[in-house]
């Protein structure tokens, strides 16, 4: 495992966006993440896979400090974004999250209109100077979220009225509108049907052009389809991390192999 990390590091040093070293996460007395080292590269889709409860979502939430909202959660180790420690006391999680956006497992549109859902982020971060600019951001985001054509005629309709797949693409568009540098996705397709899943996967592939994307998934096929790098988590340990192709065809660790062949998980 250390070898693999080193390999990744050697290959893409200049492109590393997020780097995690010796990360430990505790939930109360539970040691949920044990000593994880990972590097996330720019313009790459990195997939976190592993059985349920292996800590992959927990680790993902460390990357934009969403775990701060949970009182009993404690994070140790170092995570840097562009070389800056995101757990530095001087860092404001609000500013961090603007740079590291997140899309959640369950589509969670706000009880507002489609327009206001998208405009929410730009408004709070002051990205638009006037209504015309905001309109432009909303349209651009919806287009990049691949949902523009479906909703352009009903931007005033509530976001909660859309179908599940549309809602999730809306949430992705909402995250894009804030113009983050990294996009974290926590099992974005688990609540969607296969067609909607395919649409979202296609979207993820496009997003890679501009962002570094980290996706947590319990579906190995999905990881194989969308990601360039894959990390396999098991019982809070990062078991293996490397090129997706290699992980799936030639895993080094027996646990990874067991998982991929369906013996554990």
């Amino acid at each position: 495992m250390n070898d693999m990390t080193l390999v990744g590091k050697n290959v893409d040093t200049r492109n590393i966006k997020i780097s995690a070293r010796a990360v430990q996460v505790y939930y109360g007395d539970t040691h949920a993440i044990k000593d994880v080292d990972v590097d996330i590269e720019s313009n790459t889709v990195t997939a976190f896979i592993g059985p349920s409860g292996c800590g992959k979502s927990t680790f993902l939430r460390c990357l934009n400090r969403m775990n701060d909202t949970i009182d009993i959660c404690r994070v140790e180790g170092q995570i840097t974004l562009d070389g800056e420690d995101i757990y530095d006391p001087k860092v404001d999680p609000v500013q961090l999250r603007a740079k590291v956006g997140m899309v959640f497992q369950k589509p969670n549109p706000f009880p507002k209109s489609i327009y206001d859902n998208i405009a929410y982020g730009p408004r709070i971060h002051g990205l638009a100077r006037n209504k015309a600019e905001l309109d432009e951001i909303v349209e651009k985001s919806l287009r990049r979220g691949a949902i523009w054509d479906e909703v352009k005629d009903r931007l005033d309709a509530p976001g909660t009225g859309l179908s599940g797949g549309q809602q999730q693409r809306l949430c992705i568009a909402r995250a894009i509108a804030t113009e983050p540098e990294v996009l974290l996705m926590d099992e974005p397709c688990s609540a969607l049907d296969p067609i909607a899943t395919a649409q979202v996967e296609e979207l993820i592939d496009e997003l890679r052009q501009s962002y570094s994307v980290v996706i947590v998934t319990h579906s190995m096929q999905q990881a194989a389809r969308v990601s360039q790098k894959t990390a396999f988590f098991h019982l809070g340990n990062l078991v293996e991390f490397g090129e997706t192709g290699q992980i799936f065809t030639n895993p080094e660790d027996p646990r990874t192999e067991s998982y991929i062949t369906g013996r554990i998980g």
Binding site: D82, D92, Q95, K99, H125
Partner: peptide, 14 residues
């Protein structure tokens, strides 16, 4: 970035 150059410095807006 539109969200400030460094995480360690707060933008006026923040």
């Amino acid at each position: 970035s539109k969200h400030g150059a460094s995480l360690l410095e707060l933008t006026p807006r923040t």
